[in-house]
């Protein structure tokens, strides 16, 4: 049995400890907001937070998540009101939308440690997240906007 804490909820699962966290989330628990894109940590569609750090769940064994706090896009905020989610909606960032959960999860870690990121900070934090539709410009603006929302309403 593997004990996990995902989005502040406890789970006890009978899974192979070698299974990537991504597939436990998607196939076993049913949290499908975290996406499969490449399986080799190249595209960022599967980014989740492990103890507040962005990890690629497609190459993170579920055993590594034991005793750690896992947050997925479904648990990023209580009411879908994370500054990034607000900014994403305000700027209508998405096209197909498939990569956006991963984009937001990567950006959330950046904003946690950096209240006022520069263009360069955003560039380097987001380099691992591919958007095939090419919404990078809006993602970039939305991160700036989210930082602004966050500065105005510090938690």
């Amino acid at each position: 049995m593997i004990k996990l804490n995902i989005n502040r909820k406890s789970y006890e699962l009978d899974v192979d400890p070698e299974t990537p966290l991504l597939w436990v989330l998607r196939d076993v628990i049913g949290l499908v907001g975290t996406k499969y894109g490449c399986g080799v940590a190249q595209c960022g569609a599967c980014v989740v937070h492990l103890q507040g750090q962005a990890v690629r769940s497609c190459v993170t064994k579920v055993s590594r998540a034991v005793g750690q706090e896992v947050v997925t896009i479904e648990g990023l905020s209580e009411n879908n009101d994370h500054p990034l989610q607000k900014a994403w909606l305000e700027l209508d960032v998405s096209q197909c939308g498939y990569c956006q959960a991963g984009q937001i999860m990567s950006a959330a870690v950046l904003l946690k440690g950096n209240k006022n990121p520069t263009d360069k900070d955003i560039d380097s934090a987001m380099e691992g997240n591919i958007c095939r539709c090419g919404t990078y410009l809006r993602i970039h603006k939305a991160i700036h906007l989210a930082a602004e929302i966050q500065r105005k309403n510090p938690k």
């Binding site: 896009i73 479904e74 879908n80 989610q85 956006q100």
Partner: peptide
């Protein structure tokens, strides 16, 4: 606005 925007950013 994209009518599915909220679903997308909340991982539905």
């Amino acid at each position: 606005k994209n009518v599915e925007g909220l679903k997308i950013v909340s991982g539905k």
